[in-house]
Amino acid sequence: MSDYISHDHEHDGIDRRGFLQCMAWAGTGLLWTVSGGVLASKTLAQIAKAGNALPTTSDLSFLQISDSHIGFSKEANKDVTETFKIALDRINAMATPPAFLIHTGDITQLSKPEEFDTFDQVLKGCRTKDVFFVPGEHDVLNDGGKLYRERYLKSVGARGAGWYSFNKNGIHFIALVNVLNLQAGGLGQLGDEQLEWLEADVKSLGADTPIVVFAHIPLWAVYPQWGWGTSDSERALGYLKRFGSVTVLNGHIHQVLQKVEGNVTFHSAMSTAFPQPAPGTAASPGPMKVPAEKLRSMLGLTSIQYKQGKTALAVVDSNLS
């Protein structure tokens, strides 16, 4: 198949086919540039070849890690603490350290205090000290998230089940919780109280304020049959419709997937623990067993760069191999 562009509606050098081809490469290290809701991409190898290092002059660079699952010890990865350490080593080795990290949930496998302890202990080895958290369903298994909130959400003034917002370099960050009070037969859920808070939270912001939302379960219908979606996410996104740049980051599905809808870019990150199957390709979404030599290529982290004055956010996934 040749790489010609058949339809270039946006005059940006990328058509639907080109976009889908880029999607196929996601996960092997790509620089995604989002400009006015349109994607362009280069592989990391291409950037290195051209002598262009990743942007170092950007006003803000932060990093997303997700789904550490400390305590998991099954065949899919018998040492998740080690792969989490490797992810932190990668962060420590970055020429320009990220301003902060966000962890999009599932720190632990079973919400056990000793699993949280191990995570905290290993995290101490990270040069970047500021970390913002949102819980995954594995973090709130038996106590409705009480222990999690005490450990990770006290310093950010979280409300309700643990939602909060903050500003950095002109960007408004919103941390949402969609793993609690789930209903039989349903998906992830934000709930009325949180949605009302969200509406009020963004009300006074100008439409040119870049928005970054992060939550554990995807806020788009990735694959509802496996519970990979949030039942009331449409209402949340409705409150964000007027903004020119919205980036939504999630974990939960242990693989890179991206979708653009108007000015909203949805991006899901790899896990540092084990991969999960692509939507609908297995009997269930349980941990995916891959050959040992392949495992680290399916684990990873996500770097996000923002340059003030532009609507573009660059989202780069890199694996641990």
């Binding site: 039989a184 037969g185 349903g186 519970g227």
Partner: peptide
């Protein structure tokens, strides 16, 4: 009586 898995509520 109906029941579900509160971690994966699709399971009933």
């Amino acid at each position: 009586y109906t029941y579900f898995c509160s971690v994966h509520p699709k399971m009933t």
